[in-house]
Nucleic acid binder design. Structure first.
Lengths: 157, 157
DNA sequence: TTCCATAGTTAGGTAGCCTAACTATCACCC
DNA sequence: GGGTGATAGTTAGGCTACCTAACTATGGAA
């Protein structure tokens, strides 16, 4: 009756289907957080990485789950917008270190705040129980995300 | 000590920030489910809607959270690929009804199966507790998604 | 010091999104 | 019954963000 062990294949697939569907709609949630002259979602994403520490192009690509040329392109746009700056990696002249500019940090903070505020407003509409469930789910979602191949590759060494 | 009532603004914003971050990575999870000559994520998304019932262009746009011209474009691509067909809406000659073709239904089923299988494999790597949490979170995420403005507009009538 | 591997860039292509402007039909109403 | 405004889609043009393939430059090791 109770497979203490785990879930059946069928159950796993069913959960997968439901979760995929929810995620699909969640994309639109994210999109609905975007605004006019604001940064795009992908830009916010990249800038958030750089807020922790400067990264090389390859690092951005790996963490974003995109290819190197796409990362180059992203960075070029961000640089043109004055939000990041590129400089050669002192340890390896082939590499390029990308870091936030003052303005990049400011605009990122503003964009994050705005998005979080809108989302917080919607979260407030949920029941306290729902919020508790969501709170508990976040680390689980993160663990699941961390299982993505490619994004788990070692830094370089 | 315990605001039985609900959460503070600060807590809401904190949850919003964490959730946004998780969602951001989840996008790459979805992307990682894509494969070679397979349908794109947006296409699967559209086809999944049509699997329930034929829709008009406007209906696709609203449910996808995109504008009508973008929906037209999607449909044109799907039609060119032989996955959907368009015909005038018998009730309103201005409208266009979009429905799955036989082949569209087949390819959709295959794509869903493949994606679900990959995701199910990763879900299997989670602890049973984690899966329980995720299972509980899906309806909450759906409720949160349903709060998106624009996507909640009435059908037509 | 030669040669392969690695880091990025460049070039060219596609999906997917947008706004603005246009066409066709509907629905009302005088 | 023929305007007229609203509604449904399409077309045109533009941008972001992704891709692969091919190239350049540096690093490292034989």
């Amino acid at each position: 009756m109770e497979p203490v062990q785990g879930a059946s294949q069928k159950e796993l697939v069913a959960l997968a289907a439901k979760y995929r569907e929810s995620l699909r709609h969640a994309v639109y949630l994210t999109r609905s957080l975007d605004a006019e002259g604001d940064l795009t979602t992908a830009q916010v994403s990249t800038l958030n990485m750089l807020a922790e520490a400067p990264l090389r192009i390859g690092g951005i690509a790996r963490r974003s789950g995109i290819k190197v040329p796409s990362a180059t392109e992203q960075v070029i746009r961000l640089e043109a917008a004055g939000l990041v700056l590129r400089r050669p990696d002192p340890d390896d002249a082939r590499g390029v270190l990308v870091q936030l500019t003052e303005r990049g940090a400011q605009e990122l903070a503003a964009a994050n705040q705005r998005r979080n505020a809108i989302l917080a407003e919607r979260l407030a509409a949920l029941s306290p129980d729902d919020r508790t469930v969501l709170e508990a789910a976040v680390p689980v979602i993160d663990r699941l995300n961390s299982l993505i191949p490619e994004m788990t590759k070692p830094e370089k060494k």
